[in-house]
């Protein structure tokens, strides 16, 4: 187990290194930089401020070669926890992002829980009651869940909530609670809002998992060992949970490995639509105005946390099922 842990952590280092390089390459891709945007704005405003812009350029090291900029950025992060400055807001990136990252991962994890809690029982039900009305309904919604893109579902939900329930939409709390300190009332208000993004992000994942669980269980249900257990006189419910579900659960569990990245991805799109105070809207805005350190830091941290999260889930998995280690 220790060797496995060490190996997985060792594997993670090049992954993280690659993530940082890819991120940096991506934010360097657009021609020009934020100062060009700034200069264009200033030009439109009528002021000619070339000297000031040049000064900013030197200060941020923007004129230097790529690898120097990368080195400066990475050493700042690794040595001082300094992710650079947000050009647009003119504040350190670290001041801006942690709240939003927290919400992103809170929502992603809650979504994971939601997916598991719905997909497991529904999957078992539709396998056991194959071709029943309930199975068909689950299959139908499964397909719909796979076919509707996250942002579209978000828009539809918002429209329905707005049109038929008169609910304020967007955000995680109602406007009147925005700046209020945390109280039970605000918490309740949060719960009223947060289910919607969780539902929206989780639907497609749950749909996929229901189908996986159903297929896995159907493979197991007619195996001789199940027949043997039934012949021994075991009750159907016990029999189901003790043998086939356990076996069918294994491939189900290993989906944790890929589900976290997709959830985080989904959260980012949905939060743009629903205007949630998470990374999505901030990342989009930063990308559009070429606020490179802000955008880069968000991509980097989200990726790193996802890789770490996947690692943790893999470790849990290896702990639950020792066979995984050797795969």
């Amino acid at each position: 187990m220790l060797g496995f842990l060490a190996r997985r952590i060792l594997y993670m280092i090049p992954t993280l290194f690659l993530v940082s390089i890819v991120t940096f390459a991506i934010i360097q891709l657009p021609p020009g930089d934020y100062l060009d945007t700034l200069a264009a704005d200033m030009g439109e405003a009528g002021s000619d401020n070339n000297a000031a812009i040049e000064a900013l350029r030197v200060q941020y090291g923007l004129g230097e070669p790529m690898y120097v900029q990368y080195g400066k950025w990475m050493s700042g992060i690794l040595l001082h926890g300094n992710f650079g400055l947000s050009f647009e807001k003119n504040r350190p990136v670290t001041d801006l992002i942690w709240d939003r990252l927290g919400w992103t991962f809170l929502i992603s994890l809650l979504t994971l829980a939601f997916i598991w809690l719905t997909a497991l029982p529904i999957g078992i039900y539709s396998a056991v009651k194959k071709y029943s009305a309930g199975d068909y309904i689950a299959t139908f919604f499964g397909f719909i869940g796979l076919a509707i893109p996250n942002f579209l579902l978000a828009l539809v939900m918002m429209y329905v909530a707005f049109r038929y329930f008169g609910q304020s939409v967007g955000g995680l709390v109602s406007p009147e609670y925005l700046d209020a300190p945390w109280t039970w009332a605000k918490f309740g208000n949060l719960l009223e809002h947060i289910w919607m993004p969780i539902f929206v992000i989780g639907t497609s994942g749950a749909a996929a998992l229901i189908r996986i669980m159903r297929a896995n269980l159907l493979d197991e249900l007619y195996r001789p060992y199940v027949v043997t257990a039934r012949a021994k006189g075991m009750s159907e419910f016990q029999l189901l949970l003790r043998y086939p579900v356990r076996v069918a659960l294994n491939p189900f569990i290993s989906t944790i490995g890929w589900i976290l990245p997709t959830l985080v991805s989904g959260e980012i799109i949905v939060s743009v639509v629903m205007n949630l105070p998470t990374t999505g809207p901030m990342l989009l805005r930063a990308l559009l105005v070429q606020d490179m350190y802000l955008a880069g830091s968000l991509i980097l941290i989200v990726s790193v946390l996802t890789v770490v999260g996947t690692l943790i889930s893999d470790l849990l998995l290896a702990w639950i099922d020792p066979r995984i280690r050797y795969q």
Partner: peptide
């Protein structure tokens, strides 16, 4: 590696470029 990072932020970065 590709499967372990969330792809949407990366594409967003690429597409925004």
């Amino acid at each position: 590696f590709i499967r372990s990072v969330p792809t949407i932020p990366l594409w967003m970065g690429l597409a925004a470029a």
